[in-house]
Design a protein around this nucleic acid. Structure first.
Lengths: 116, 116
DNA sequence: ACATAACATGCCTTGACAGGAATATTCCTG
DNA sequence: CAGGAATATTCCTGTCAAGGCATGTTATGT
């Protein structure tokens, strides 16, 4: 999961992913449209590939890179637990505030005395 | 958007987010549970905050950090366009294969001649 | 087999960033 | 106001990763 975020953290890599969203492309095609040099593109694709975000398919001497559904689905799955945050009520921050009053089993046993 | 990925790319930062998913916590609480030193936690929280992933709420001399729905929703929105990939058919990689045959306006006009 | 196209790799240099330790800041309490 | 708790900030150092450039690799066509 961490590899996924690391991979997408690089601006150029993120661009590549967004570019491949439309259609798969050969390395040269990517370099051309993103104004990058071929070697760097290859390197980035390597990282994206190891993160499971893209997949290759050799055609003659070119390699067609395309997005890999599985990889992006993982990201989507990771987000699931959080999704309730904006669909659900909210983060009940207050509930915790009182737990804080005691913080570290009551400093000196003064103020209010609560249990648990 | 890039800031979001960069922020989550750091292992400890990702852990912090996952920890705050359960409940908001003060800096010390985070440091304690993740076995990290307070200064580093503060730094990470700073990054997460600038990425809009967490929000603070001062309580006495402690700062309660909690997730920020807006931030995570952005990530969710970013994913939307890709979501069709695994729910929809697939990435029609083949469709492109033939576009490749011509690649660069037909090298020498040989092989098969297709339109569009 | 040779020339060439399309990529992948390796090496080097430079810049960004995370951890460590010390210090500054803020806020509460007596 | 002094003392201390909870955080934030600063400075320093080591590491890792990205770009540039040259070169290796594989596949194609003649």
């Amino acid at each position: 999961m961490n590899a996924t975020f690391s991979a997408l953290a690089e601006p150029n890599r993120l661009q590549i992913v967004e570019l491949l969203r439309h259609r798969p492309l050969p390395v040269g095609g990517i370099a051309e449209r993103l104004r990058m040099r071929q070697p760097q593109v290859s390197k980035h694709l390597r990282v994206l590939s190891e993160a499971g975000l893209v997949q290759v398919r050799p055609v003659a001497q070119q390699r067609i890179y395309g997005l890999r559904a599985e990889g992006l689905k993982e990201l989507d799955d990771w987000l699931k637990p959080y999704r309730t945050m904006w669909s659900d009520r909210f983060l009940r921050m207050d509930e915790v505030l009182r737990e804080l009053t005691s913080q570290k089993k009551a400093s000196k046993g003064k103020k209010d005395g609560h249990h648990k």
